[in-house]
Design a protein around this nucleic acid. Structure first.
Lengths: 340, 340
DNA sequence: AATCGTGTTGCACAGCATTGCAATAACATG
DNA sequence: CATGTTATTGCAATGCTGTGCAACACGATT
């Protein structure tokens, strides 16, 4: 404020500088910032005053060095800007910040090399844990984190020996099938992406399985990307390949929006001619242009579970790995025909 | 892999352990991971072998301690899950990772206290820089980062003495007004949020200014939130308060979607009865249910500018602060009536 | 007045990697 | 064979903070 030169070369202020200014030892400074430490009220005040004047902040790098771990938690993800991922990132980072962590987001491409790099980076920063939102870590990376005692948490993908939290894809698919079944539909279809993630794959498999078990022959269309354009393309192929379906399950909302728009453009009425169900319940699903009936995954719920697992894993590094499943909930809006 | 016990207590592997296994000194290990350092090919190989077997990764905390700064860059934002923010976060984190940084995302609430906490946290981790995506840092925090020599970069808000990058809100508003003007409209309106950010405020002010300068009396509606529901609410109030506008400028796309849906529900045809222009050009704007004409801000462009400023600021901490403006581009789709 | 207890404070070391400097080994040259 | 040169390598210091341990002062107790 009034100093003018602040400090030497614009470097960070150290405890040493505060100690000199307050006329105490460096230990005193350290104690002044450690709750419950033994320090006289007078010195405490002098130290705090000097610290405020200099703008001192404890160096968490050094603190982490001492503890051999930082409060960083890595969030590894691809497509960080897609709606559901963005919600997950927001919810996770919020929950982690509340826990006192600093979430580092590693936005990766689809290659294994990218994933490996991200993982190594986080290891180098002694991150307290790494959370994978998408893309499974290669075996070599799992081994690496294990050697270094860094917890690894997977979201929506199972991997033996690792902690994970996922929604109940099976149950979601079943709810979707039953809801569509009640409309009296007979021409079922699913749309998905090629090389789907385990979670997306499970939804498709389960849905198709239920349909077959009920005596139907579900159509399955897979396209390159699980986004809006992918959904449009899938719907186009579906209509081109034969009679229009009267019940469509999309493995995520984004594809559902694309499909919905294409279906309507093609002159089909939703839900009169065809009923559509999505998955995720992103905010857009509630918009009046879509009013999409969908299976809801709550990002905050997931974030809460992740934090719980983290607490447990850190308290007991040798505890057996857990897989937490949480239920999905059918949110009924206006893309499914009322039951007959 | 075959070790069984890996290492002692699941702690991180240190250079010490690698040195012992390879039968060399710690220095040799360090040199083995420093490109260009003087080391014999034989020892290099032995060290790398031992490191691979143990799963060693250099400790960037200690490295940062020595350099007195980490490769962390803080991204301070609120509403991390709104579409445009999510795009910004994705683009920035990608650009920063390419630069060798680790982006830490601090998702904050609206209070000054939250912002201050985030800023302090980043200071404690000796982050290389802090980027504010939303919310201006309080004066005390600016002073604090200055005292510690930590660069601060603002996005879409100006603050004297600080580096910033923003889109040309004025020009965007002008383009919007001109495009709407060409439809022959006469009843102009803007919708915005209460207590708008500087950028949102500038758009509204400029648009209203141009309208007035052309002899019109623009209607201005402000609502609590700049999201979809806010846009609906604003449109509702607009229609309730008098004759329907025939040209509507929304300060961001999200509000435009809400307004569009409400307008259509109210029986107005877009663009025949009313033309609408948004701001940002989020992906949804291209969806066939909306096909929104809007002003495009390119997140990757912004990210690139931020990295450039960062490079410059680090090379010369005393360089005068810069404000980079970049142009916005009118993306013409189908919510503006063709010119008469 | 002597002794004990309590509250403070400083010293020194740990934790990890980098790097200047000095020592060593190996090799070449006269 | 002696000496000079070069490539390696280890030592030790550095950067910053937390904390056990010992020293110290001061007030209280008998």
């Amino acid at each position: 404020m009034a100093d003018g030169k602040d400090n030497g070369q614009g470097r960070f202020v150290s405890a040493q500088a505060v100690a000199e200014r307050a006329g105490v030892s460096r230990s005193a400074v350290s104690r002044a910032f450690t709750p419950g430490a033994s320090i006289a009220p007078g010195t405490l005040a002098r130290v705090h005053e000097a610290a405020a004047a200099l703008g001192y902040q404890v160096n968490d790098l050094a603190r982490g060095l001492l503890a051999n771990r930082s409060r960083l938690v890595g969030l590894v993800t691809s497509d960080a800007d897609s709606p559901f991922r963005a919600q997950m990132i927001a919810a996770l980072s919020q929950a982690l910040i509340e826990r006192g962590n600093v979430p580092a987001i590693i936005n990766i491409g689809p290659t294994t090399e990218d994933v490996a790099n991200a993982s190594r980076q986080l290891l180098r920063y002694r991150a307290e844990a790494t959370v994978f939102l998408s893309g499974s870590p290669p075996e070599s990376m799992v081994e690496l984190t294990r050697q270094n005692g860094q917890p690894l948490i997977l979201i929506n993908r199972a991997e033996t020996g690792l902690d994970s939290v996922h929604c109940d894809d099976m149950d979601g698919a079943q709810q979707a099938f039953e809801a569509l079944s009640l409309t009296g539909a007979s021409r079922f279809a699913v749309i998905n992406k090629e090389d789907p993630s385990p979670s997306l794959g499970a939804r498709e498999q389960a849905f198709a399985g239920f349909a077959v078990a009920s005596g139907f022959k579900p159509g399955v269309v897979r396209v390159g990307h699980s986004d809006y354009d992918g959904g449009r393309e899938a719907a186009r192929r579906l209509l081109a390949s034969g009679p229009a379906p009267d019940a469509l399950f999309c493995v995520n909302d984004l594809m559902a929006f694309g499909a919905l728009d294409h279906l309507r453009e093609a002159g089909l009425r939703v839900p009169d001619d065809v009923s559509v169900i999505g998955f995720d319940d992103v905010p857009i699903a509630a918009w009046t242009s879509y009013r999409l009936t969908t299976l809801r995954q709550d990002p905050h719920r997931i974030a809460k579970e992740v934090v719980l697992i983290l607490d447990r894993r850190i308290a007991d590094p040798d505890a057996p790995p857990v897989s937490v499943y949480f239920p999905v909930e059918l949110v009924v809006r206006e893309t499914v025909k009322a039951r007959r």
